[in-house]
């Protein structure tokens, strides 16, 4: 296959909350397909199920029904321990609230995923070296030994991005990455994500802000737990051999 392969492929993903008589379906048969190297936004109003979808795509929870192939592997039936390993190896998270460990330096925060890496264990020197490289990549080479409270919001989010990339994941999931930032810092973070995308990183961004979503290649709009529309945002579209989704 000359084209990029599927990183995310879901088949009829359903998530039902609640027990007994009262059951709420947060997701109701979601089929999406995201290819390697893509930059995709998932949008939707409150209650549309976008957080639930993000949690499933991020292997933080499992679907009630349906299948989820991450990087070609069916992860919908894995247990907690296996899911933890998948998160460690294949997924990098960027959160709205940065979620760095307090009173821990930027460098230590970035090396944290190595701690739980059983597949490719690294020595302390190797992890520190890689973490320094990543921090330089996100433009924080001079602030490696600063703790989160000594950094601005934008800088903290850069640390989080470096941490997300440290284990060479197959994709990065960004949950409202600019939600806590002022416009300028938000733009900087978006530019950084673009830069990563151009270097080949697959990015799935969850957002409610159309102005942010427009910077991605396409937007998957969720309504009531189902894929409503898929919008192509034009300029960043990459050529793929097959287009498995229905373009509007």
């Amino acid at each position: 296959m000359s084209a990029a392969h599927s990183i995310i492929k879901t088949v009829g993903i359903t998530k039902v909350y609640g027990m007994g008589d009262i059951q709420v379906a947060a997701l109701n048969g979601v089929n999406i397909d995201i290819h390697q190297g893509e930059f995709v936004a998932i949008m939707g109003p409150s209650g549309s199920g976008k957080s639930t979808l993000m949690h499933i795509l991020g292997c933080l929870s499992q679907p009630t029904a349906g299948q989820y192939f991450l990087d070609g592997e069916d992860v919908s039936q894995l247990d907690k321990v296996q899911l933890a390993s998948v998160r460690n190896q294949k997924i990098g998270f960027i959160f709205q609230a940065y979620n760095l460990l307090a009173r821990t330096t930027a460098l230590q925060n970035v090396t944290l995923p190595f701690l739980y890496n059983r597949v490719n264990p690294k020595t302390k020197e190797e992890s520190l070296k890689k973490a320094r490289t990543m921090l330089e990549l996100v433009g924080l080479g001079s602030r490696m030994n600063h703790q989160p409270h000594e950094l601005s919001g934008g800088q903290q989010q850069r640390v989080a991005i470096a941490r997300a990339l440290i284990n060479d994941p197959v994709m990065v999931i960004a949950d409202e990455p600019t939600g806590n930032l002022d416009t300028r810092s938000g733009t900087e973070i978006m530019n950084l994500l673009h830069q990563l995308h151009e270097q080949g990183t697959t990015i799935v961004m969850v957002t409610h802000d159309p102005k942010t979503a427009v910077h991605t290649q396409r937007t998957i709009n969720l309504v009531d737990g189902q894929v409503d529309t898929i919008t192509h945002n034009g300029k960043h579209r990459i050529e793929t051999a097959e287009v498995p989704y229905e373009a509007n």
Binding site: G58, L60, K80, V81, A84, S85, R87, N88, Q89, F93, F95, N99, L100, L101, A102, L112, P113, L115, Y116, N117, R163, N167
Partner: peptide
């Protein structure tokens, strides 16, 4: 709790 969540999200198993 938050710290535990962060560690879990980057791959800590229950045993970790």
């Amino acid at each position: 709790t938050r710290e535990i969540g962060i560690r879990q999200s980057i791959g800590a198993t229950p045993n970790d």
